[in-house]
C-alpha cells in the first residue's frame, strides 16, 4: 500500500473525515453524558444536587461520598454488596462454563441412550426465560433452605443452554483425527478433554466469560426475590433498595457513588478480556 494516509480500506480525506468524527464525538457525548452526570452527582453534597441547576463539574466530596458508600451504605455497606455480586457473577460465569463444557463434551463425544433426547431437552430450555420458571424455582430453592445464601443466588442460574450449544458447535468442528491421535497417544476421555479440548476452546471460554459475568452481575429479579437480608443484597438490586420508601430523603450522592461502583467491575472485565473476547467471537481456531 502506498503511504500511511491511505492504509485504511476506504480512502479518507478532507471534510468527510471531520464530519464522521464530529458525528462519532456527538454520539459518544450523548451516551456518556448521563454517566458523567452520575459521576458528578457522586462528588457533590446532597443540597447541591437538589438545588437546580444541577452541577456539571465534579465537586470536592469524592472521597467522603465513596467512603461513606463503601463502608456504611444505606441498608448495607456497598463493599459487602460488591462482594456478593462478585461471588454471584463469578459463580454463575465459571459454573456455567464448566457445566456447559462438560455437557457439550458428553453430547458430542459419547454415544449413550437418549443422547439426542438430552440434547433437545437442553436446547428447549433456551426458549424458556428465567421469569417463566421463577415461581417453581423459588419453591425449590426455599425447600433446600438456600434463601439468603450465595448458593441460592448462583445455583438456579448455573445451567446454560446457550453456552452448551456454543461449545457443542465448536467441538463438532474439531477434526476426528485429533480425537484418534489422542487415543493412540493414550489419552483417556477426561485427559483428552482437559489437555486438548479445553485449551483449544480457550478463546470461546474467554468470550463466554465476559458475556456471562455481565449477565450474572446484572441479575436483578432473582436476587430481589431470594435475598431478604440486606447483608446478602447484590449491588444491582441494592441500588434500588437504597431508594427510601415513604417520605425520607434519598441520599443521592451515596446512591450515585454506588451506581458508579456497580458499573466498574463489568467495565474492567471487558477491558482486560477484550482481546481474547474479540478473538473468541471472530476466530475459529483449528
Amino acid at each position: 500500500m502506498a503511504g500511511g494516509a491511505q492504509s485504511g480500506m476506504v480512502e479518507r480525506r478532507g471534510w468527510s473525515l471531520w464530519l464522521t468524527h464530529a458525528g462519532l464525538i456527538l454520539g459518544v457525548m450523548v451516551i456518556a453524558f448521563p454517566i458523567w452526570l452520575a459521576f458528578v452527582a457522586s462528588t457533590v453534597t446532597q443540597p447541591e444536587i437538589v438545588r437546580p441547576p444541577m452541577p456539571v463539574l465534579p465537586g470536592d466530596q469524592f472521597f467522603e461520598n465513596y467512603r461513606k458508600a463503601l463502608v456504611a451504605g444505606v441498608n448495607a455497606p456497598v463493599a459487602k454488596m460488591l462482594m456478593n455480586s462478585a461471588v454471584m457473577a463469578l459463580g454463575i460465569a465459571l459454573g456455567k462454563i464448566a457445566i456447559s463444557l462438560l455437557s457439550a463434551f458428553a453430547i458430542v463425544y459419547f454415544r449413550f441412550p437418549g443422547r439426542k433426547a438430552f440434547f433437545w431437552l437442553i436446547f428447549l430450555t433456551l426458549m424458556l426465560p428465567v421469569e417463566v420458571r421463577i415461581v417453581p424455582t423459588y419453591e425449590v430453592v426455599a425447600g433446600f433452605g438456600m434463601l439468603n445464601s450465595h448458593a441460592g443466588l448462583i445455583l438456579p442460574l448455573i445451567a446454560s443452554a446457550t453456552a452448551t450449544f456454543l461449545f457443542r458447535q465448536f467441538f463438532m468442528t474439531v477434526p476426528d483425527e485429533l480425537v484418534e491421535a489422542a487415543r493412540v497417544d493414550g489419552a483417556r476421555p477426561m485427559r483428552f478433554f482437559l489437555d486438548i479440548l479445553v485449551p483449544m476452546s480457550r478463546t470461546n471460554i474467554a468470550a463466554l466469560f465476559v458475556i456471562l459475568f455481565i449477565y450474572g452481575w446484572n441479575q436483578y429479579l432473582w436476587p430481589l426475590l431470594i435475598t431478604t437480608d440486606p447483608q446478602m443484597n447484590t449491588i444491582v438490586m441494592g441500588i434500588k433498595q437504597m431508594f427510601p420508601s415513604g417520605d425520607d430523603i434519598a441520599d443521592w450522592p451515596v446512591i450515585m457513588a454506588t451506581s458508579i461502583l456497580a458499573m466498574l467491575p463489568p467495565v474492567l472485565v471487558v477491558i482486560f478480556m477484550q482481546k481474547l473476547f474479540i478473538r473468541g467471537l471472530v476466530e475459529s481456531e483449528k
Binding site: E177, L178, A181, V184
Partner: peptide, 20 residues
C-alpha cells in the same frame, strides 16, 4: 485392546497435530 495398549503409532493424513 485400546490403541494405546497395542504398542503402535499412527501417522494421520491431516497430521492431527494438537494446535495449541
Amino acid at each position: 485392546r485400546e490403541p494405546m495398549d497395542r504398542n503402535i503409532a499412527m501417522v494421520f493424513q491431516n497430521y492431527a497435530l494438537y494446535p495449541h
